[in-house]
Design a binder for these strands. Structure first.
Lengths: 230, 230
DNA sequence: CTGTGTGAATGGTTTCACAGCC
DNA sequence: GGCTGTGAAACCATTCACACAG
């Protein structure tokens, strides 16, 4: 329970399986910690960190407690140190080489998206099956035929893949990624894939988020929400 | 409790606030129902619908029970009818006119993304503050200065906005959208915004999803996961 | 028989409240 | 004084199990 001697602040390391929603919030904490770093803040309390995210202080502490002891009673958390700890937990304390599969609309946007490399995810190769885009260059990246994935995966040390292919091509692309030995997929196809085991998949369905928004708006208009009183 | 006379299947309509995770699954049900429609299936049981999504049959039934009575004992759910009911619940049984704010990398991709219009969300106007892109055309869409948003919002009956602006411009853009009287925002800026009330916001942070993926991969490598036995 | 709708039971997440530390 | 870490309580979500309908 005690902190030990020095202020390393890195307690036990992660012990268990992740409570899922917690990991999503870890990313949010990270965002805010980085904003605070720029603002020059040295420490932050669970109370202030939670307020920025509209969650309770206890939630923040419980979340972090899943992965070790990072705080200092009476002080709070040291911003730079907590940032490093969370990055270590998430596995983003290093760079990742990423393959882009599917160079259509979405794929091209992701190639130019600075948000990925800012967080250490570098798209270093692009693949497609359409003869029209194979060989084209986008910035420093040339589009390769999907068949070259296994070879380039070894040469470039690719670990993750971003899948921006149409729903119809999803299963094939996933199989290719799995066969090339990559470890994880970020999937943009609007379809829940059958995951080939020993591959981690996170899916983002842009249409689904708009549907969520439509629901919220529709609900709000139907049920006038009893706020604004007090 | 009884069904009444005819097979309309639309029980009460939504009664309460939405259990949140349920709405996300509604979108998934919708996807699968549409695939089944194409495949020519007439009915589906909660069991089969759940299996496709790797959730239990009871979960499917409970989710749907939030919004009415849609099933037929001994039969299951009529695919076309359930699809219509879910779309009605989500508010996607009609078209929505959407404004795109921010025509950078991500914004341009979204302009060309067919997944939105397939679900009834039509980007009918684009806005930006940078003189470089104002006046440019992308397909049928011309980029307007953000100051024109209020006028065009009325003329084009805009209801939702997709925000693809850098994090620094987020608060300003949100204020502009709120002032123009739109009802909801789909936010792609990697920042949790302070929501201006009477505006619904759904955020998608692409970097965050890659971080989730990195965590899963890292965890799997550290804890070898005791499966594959039995 | 098949399969829904739903109360009861289970499991997980969030909040509360407080002991301990600075 | 302020603040973390954590058991206990409250809350919410999922699963189970069964009465009822076709």
């Amino acid at each position: 329970m005690s902190r030990g001697t020095n202020g390393s602040g890195h307690g036990s390391g992660c012990d268990n399986g992740a409570p899922k929603a917690v990991v999503a919030r870890l990313s949010l904490y990270l965002r805010h910690l980085e904003a605070m770093l720029k603002a020059g803040d040295e420490t932050v309390s669970s109370n202030r960190l939670g307020a920025a995210l509209e969650i309770t202080d206890a939630q923040v502490r419980k979340d972090l407690a899943n992965f070790g002891q990072f705080g200092y009673p009476g002080i709070g958390y040291r911003v730079a140190e907590l940032r490093a700890s969370i990055r270590s937990v998430l596995g983003t304390n290093r760079d990742w080489n990423v393959a882009l599969i599917g160079v259509g609309n979405i794929g091209r946007a992701l190639l130019g998206y600075s948000g990925f490399s800012e967080r250490g995810f570098h798209i270093v190769a692009a693949f497609d099956n359409s003869p029209e885009v194979i060989g084209q260059r986008f910035g420093a990246i040339e589009v390769h035929p999907l068949a070259d994935l296994p070879k380039l995966a070894r040469e470039l040390d690719l670990e993750l893949a971003v899948l921006a292919v149409p729903a119809a091509g999803l299963e094939d692309a996933m199989a290719a990624v799995a066969a090339a030995g990559l470890a994880g997929i970020l999937n943009f196809a609007p379809m829940q894939p059958r995951v080939p085991s020993d591959l981690s998949v996170v899916s983002v369905d842009l249409g689904q988020h708009l549907e969520q928004l439509a629901f919220q708006v529709t609900k709000r208009r139907t049920v006038p929400t009893l706020e604004a009183s007090a």
